[in-house]
């Protein structure tokens, strides 16, 4: 099935089996491995990306149903030019094993784009799906909060 995808500002014309989840297109076809596989059933958040700015679990989104431009963790910022949310993650030393963090950051970024000054309840709701087995939740809360403050000041 021919598919046209825009990922991180780049256009890809691909021939893919219909029904293939976006996650695996990103990881195995486009080699964008920053987006992680954790469960495949939309219950861990490791695969969270943005589609049209909205946080989406890419493991449950068939590539044919992608309705808008896709942004992955690699498109959010880079090691040399991290996005403000990534800078907050670095400053707060959130990551332990780090495997869940791409998804956490994408979920948090989508929240802050929509709600610049989220309440604790809004942070909890936005990140409720994203599992972290290393238990970095306290640092995540702090990083989201300080990213929000910085982004509003900027």
């Amino acid at each position: 099935m021919p598919v046209t995808l825009r990922v991180n500002g780049q256009r890809h014309d691909l021939d893919l089996p219909p029904g293939m989840p976006l996650l695996w297109v990103l990881r195995d076809v486009l080699d964008l491995t920053g987006t992680k596989y954790g469960c495949g059933v939309a219950s861990c958040g490791a695969c969270t990306v943005h589609v049209g700015g909205q946080a989406v679990q890419s493991c449950q989104l068939p590539v044919g149903d992608v309705w808008d431009e896709v942004t992955t963790i690699e498109g959010l910022g880079t090691p040399d030019a991290p996005a403000p949310i990534q800078a907050a993650w670095i400053a707060h030393q959130v990551a332990q094993c780090g495997y869940c963090q791409s998804g956490q950051i994408m979920a948090a970024a989508a929240l802050l784009a929509e709600v610049p000054d989220p309440s604790d309840a809004e942070i909890e709701a936005a990140l409720a799906l994203n599992l972290c087995r290393c238990g970095t939740y306290g640092a995540i809360r702090a990083a989201v909060r300080s990213a929000a403050d910085q982004m509003r000041e900027a």
Binding site: T33, E74, W89, I90
Partner: peptide, 15 residues
């Protein structure tokens, strides 16, 4: 490892 793990550039075996 903080920068790599915050920018999706840390490479695990699965990557």
């Amino acid at each position: 490892d903080a920068v790599a793990k915050s920018t999706g550039t840390a490479r695990y075996a699965i990557d």
